[in-house]
Design a protein around this nucleic acid. Structure first.
Lengths: 345, 345
DNA sequence: TAAAATTAATTAACCGGTTACACATAAATA
DNA sequence: TATTTATGTGTAACCGGTTAATTAATTTTA
């Protein structure tokens, strides 16, 4: 069964004794229609609760008012935040945002792009996934580039392709702030728990971590940089255990996201130590997760609403042919909570 | 600027020297086209990477292959889980799921329904929000009922309206299991931390809590039922503090969701007690949150994939005019983790 | 009051696909 | 070989809106 027979603009026009053009003008609220007809038609529209088909309108106006978004997994608070803000923003601009979860599978990412292309989305917003990988897989790169030639592609992340817009967070700045904060508290042995090293975020943070230690005149200890692989609390737990088993463990640890920070906290607590008394912890993302643990975790904070605003306004500007920045870098701030403490000299 | 001029089926047909009907048949892979033409056309399609417009197809076939979903906020892990599973399932069936975050604002919920109606979604899936309220606001009820007369409305929750399908979780069963588990461990003083009392889930859980205590021959202490208002960790923290200040505090607490359970855990730890040594905790939802705290929290578990499967298959069956159950109740199970402990008699 | 200018409403083409129907051509049967 | 049947392809109508061009109605001006 197809849709139940929907009422159309023809039905309204017939019942009102006017042409479809007139009904269309009334619905679009354009000038040049007499009030009496306006009222008559409106009454019929209300009576049937008629809503003009966006599909027919889309075909006629050759635009869909659809925006596509790709993200690995909305269950991840980071993507949920971005999506939610973007969805709200798109709605305000009378656009609909369609989200697809790709689970960072190249074939799925490409399949979704093709599908969104069929839906005639007017712009594509890519959040993470394969886009974060370095180097970028060739087939993926080609697909995105081909796509970007037809419609504006906005990457919520770093990705320098010719026709793309990139809007990303200044992780280096966040890392610098985290290290500075810990150094100011007197910490000299600071560790960094990171995830996949083949994504640019990890690479940027690592580089920034090294530089920040230099800036603070702190030595770089290779054992304090641990690749926890998994991006979740389990990775954090395992990584932290390794750090704690060192002859001279660090006194503070920076985790590449809040999930890992929570895992690190668990490792510390399980071994009978406490936070912040024995160890200080800083995470990244400042998601609600930081308030679920005891103690709450200090974290590098992003302004998701501002991020979404940039993403959507770039997409809409590009669609409208208005010039807009090819690259936007978003600042971070450090949200200080109970997981850090001054160290006695 | 509208979309860049897209290539159409006419362009393909012209270049291949065939009619659009033939191209359409080839794209749809329907029989009755000679292989040589097939190959010739396909080559041109591939050359331009032509994707037929879903908008034009939708208009012609009078269907959108769109499903609409309403939820309060995807940042909430519960909704993120349902959405993610549904999105994946819909994709498998060649449908696209459009999600709108309503923040449980009646006006927004209604506005989104109207908008989805314009998009000609073939079915609407409502997850929580105003749908959970008891009593149901009249205007909301009317809107949903009107909607349900046109397309299948599937409620992920309890909502008995004439033309709707309702698929909900058996919270009462979950509560019974939680109480039974705690009682078996020897707990006699069990508290229940709940949220908004104007939603059916709270009402169902409360009722089930009372009955379960009876079943276990445990006395019902009014002070052990606390309305924490807010559904988050702060509500849990405040509610638990109140319980801890009682002359005779409970030894176990059931929280209406994991967020509140995490808050309750914080309250306990802050006052210097420990879990599970001094108090046992059980949450609801069994989200990833339960693994972020130390200790991990036992929680009433739902099978989100099964939930999504029911939701989507009901929607698609109803769209297809196939008969399907008006009401489906989903079972729960209890995931036991470290937050509960046997009490010495 | 007639002509000109303005405003209101209609007609019909168009958007880009699908598909019922008509028509040719080829293969099977008489 | 003539006739029937099957197969392949094209024509054109349709889906439900928008809008340019056109015509009709009204108001203004001469």
């Amino acid at each position: 069964m197809a849709l139940k027979k929907e009422i159309t603009i023809y039905d309204i026009a017939r019942e009102a004794g006017v042409s479809t053009a007139t009904v269309s003008r009334i619905l679009a609220n354009s000038a040049g229609v007499k009030q009496d007809k306006r009222d008559r038609v409106q009454a019929i529209v209300d009576k049937y609760n008629f809503k003009p088909s966006a599909i027919a309108r889309g075909l006629s106006e050759t635009h869909s008012r659809l925006l596509g978004m790709l993200c690995p997994d909305v269950r991840n608070a980071y993507y949920a935040n971005i999506f939610m803000e973007c969805e709200r923003m798109a709605y305000d601009k009378n656009y609909t945002l369609v989200l697809n979860n790709t689970f960072t599978q190249e074939s799925l990412e490409i399949a979704f792009m093709e599908k969104l292309s069929e839906q005639r989305v007017e712009s594509l917003i890519i959040c993470g996934g394969i886009a974060d990988w370095r180097p970028l897989p060739a087939r993926y790169r080609d697909t995105v580039e081909r796509f970007a030639k037809r419609i504006p592609v906005v990457v919520a992340g770093k990705m320098e392709l010719d026709d793309c817009y990139q809007i990303f967070i200044d992780h280096a700045e966040g890392m610098r702030a985290a290290v500075r904060h810990l150094a100011t508290l007197g910490h000299k042995r600071i560790a960094f728990l990171h995830g996949y090293s083949f994504i640019y975020q990890t690479q940027d943070k690592l580089e920034a971590f090294r530089r920040a230690l230099e800036e603070q005149n702190l030595p770089l200890c290779k054992e304090y940089i641990v690749d926890a692989g998994e991006f979740n609390e389990h990775g954090g737990l395992v990584g932290m255990k390794r750090l704690l088993s060192l002859a001279e463990p660090p006194t503070a640890v920076i985790a590449t996201n809040d999930l890992m920070a929570a895992g690190a906290l668990q490792a510390i607590l399980r071994l009978g130590y406490s936070v912040p008394e024995d160890f200080s912890i800083v995470g990244f993302d400042d998601s609600f997760i930081t308030d679920l643990t005891e103690p709450h975790i200090s974290s590098v904070h992003y302004d998701y609403a501002a991020y979404a605003e940039k993403l959507i306004s770039t997409a809409l500007s590009a669609i409208a042919g208005r010039p807009c920045a090819r690259t936007v870098v978003l600042p971070t701030s450090l949200t200080v909570k109970e997981s850090c403490r001054k160290i006695d000299a």
